[in-house]
Design a protein around this nucleic acid. Structure first.
Lengths: 257, 257
DNA sequence: CGGTACATTGAATAATATCAATCATTGTGG
DNA sequence: CCACAATGATTGATATTATTCAATGTACCG
């Protein structure tokens, strides 16, 4: 799940130095900046770096900003810092949170014409966005970049399928447990035989992600707390006391991650 | 959604002639055959063809066969003829049908260690399977193949996200309508201002795909029938009488596909 | 120190699942 | 070709689950 780190750090290095101080310093609003950072020499070839750099569009976003990316064309977005959610809209104002993304995560965001997708900042963010078609064209001439993009897509597909399984088959309790396990694996700080979480998203976001209402999420959280599996403090801090037991609760197949 | 047809037909051409008569003739059981068909000269370069051909493993499967593919390694599977379902297992015997696949469809099937996925034949099938790692390696040296594989993955991701939206947000009625619309687009024969469907999967399969029980699927079908949107004959024949109205029922955003 | 948004809890409602029975379709053997 | 068994689909009654509606409580921001 972390094979993409190389290309992530690659892109960060070639795009950040400039971008960071030019835009991130005061993100009063969404800022698009042409990054012109010098190429850092990394695994991939020099030509790729130069052209990647030319494509780079730095995006600073404040917490709560939606429509963080250009919606007129499909984008490949890298999270440099912060946290974002990818939301899809059904009719009647219903929204599904397709996923949460954190530092070093890649996101493929289809153009608005195809599907009603939107990237929203959960906290102040630093993102790097590429037009997907150009990114893909570029990846063709660089094996490393291409490989990383492929494995990212395969990983995204796996995650999405996993979510389908959860949404289609699991109970509210299992979904909340699954969500917590997933978050622990991605942004959890190791703690005893559990993990420490600082969730950047609201209960509504969680509910929209796992197909439940805020009330149901809340109730399941208290049940998990009463069962001694987690403890909470404040809105966002969750302490997973027994990760193995929580995985059991999540309805995971024994023997699988 | 059909950009993959080129590479599909490419692979079919380079692998079928032999395979078809050697194995498909009498699929008494699952048969793995090394295909040694001559290279058909198509868009992609000659070397790619030769190597693709070397990778090709022809698979004939009878209706109902599960574990159609080798589970020890991730596979890329092409449906030459027939229909298959990709299923994932949660604990307690619950299964989620991740998707249905038909002629010319590509499927990425992760190895069993990673996730408990399985490919099952819905009717007698002719499939071509490649070990994923080798397929990807090969795709790197052929731009066309790589492009097609990429767009397939993007398409698969889109479909999976669409399914997440349905499973997370939609009602039973909307899910069944969504399913029918999707099938109409994929295997429907045009008919008046609707489509004619011959569904190869059972109600259970449908239910496991859209996260409902067979009873609920059945009830929604009769409701749609009573509403004059579809008519049915036998178990598998469904006639969509008004596709536009059905899309409305499916909770699609107005203006989107 | 409020005020506002968010989260939790409770009671009532609606949706879907479950259990049970009947009906239809398909395939088989006489 | 038909009867019949077996599987799958439909329909009905009930149970369960999650949602909705409503109220209260709590954290976070100026």
């Amino acid at each position: 799940m972390t094979e993409i780190n190389d290309v992530a750090s690659l892109i960060i290095q070639i795009s950040l130095m400039h971008a960071k101080q030019s835009a991130a310093a005061s993100p009063t609003s969404i800022v698009f900046t042409g990054a012109t950072a010098p190429v850092a020499s990394l695994g991939a070839n020099e030509a790729t770096h130069l052209r990647l750099q030319a494509l780079t569009r730095y995006v600073g976003a404040r917490s709560g900003d939606s429509r963080v990316t250009d919606n007129s064309a499909s984008q490949v977005v890298l999270v440099v810092e912060g946290a974002v959610k990818l939301i899809a809209s059904a009719s009647a104002g219903r929204t599904q949170v397709m996923g949460f993304y954190f530092k070093d995560d890649f996101i493929y965001v289809p153009a608005r014409e195809t599907h009603a997708y939107n990237l929203c900042a959960l906290k102040d963010c630093e993102l790097v966005a590429f037009p997907a078609t150009e990114f893909i064209r570029l990846a063709q001439s660089d094996k490393t970049l291409n490989n990383n993009f492929l494995s990212h897509l395969l990983c995204a597909l796996s995650r999405c399928r996993e979510k389908s399984l959860a949404l289609g088959q699991k109970t509210a309790r299992e979904r909340v447990a699954t969500f917590l396990v997933s978050m622990a694996e991605r942004i959890g700080a190791p703690f005893s035989n559990g993990a420490l979480l600082d969730l950047p998203m609201s209960r509504r976001d969680i509910g929209d992600n796992i197909g439940l209402t805020i009330e149901t999420v809340s109730r399941q959280m208290t049940e998990l707390r009463n069962a001694g599996l987690v403890s909470t403090s404040g809105r966002s801090q969750v302490k997973i006391l027994d990760l193995a037991a929580l995985k059991q609760e999540a309805g995971h197949l024994p023997g699988l991650s």
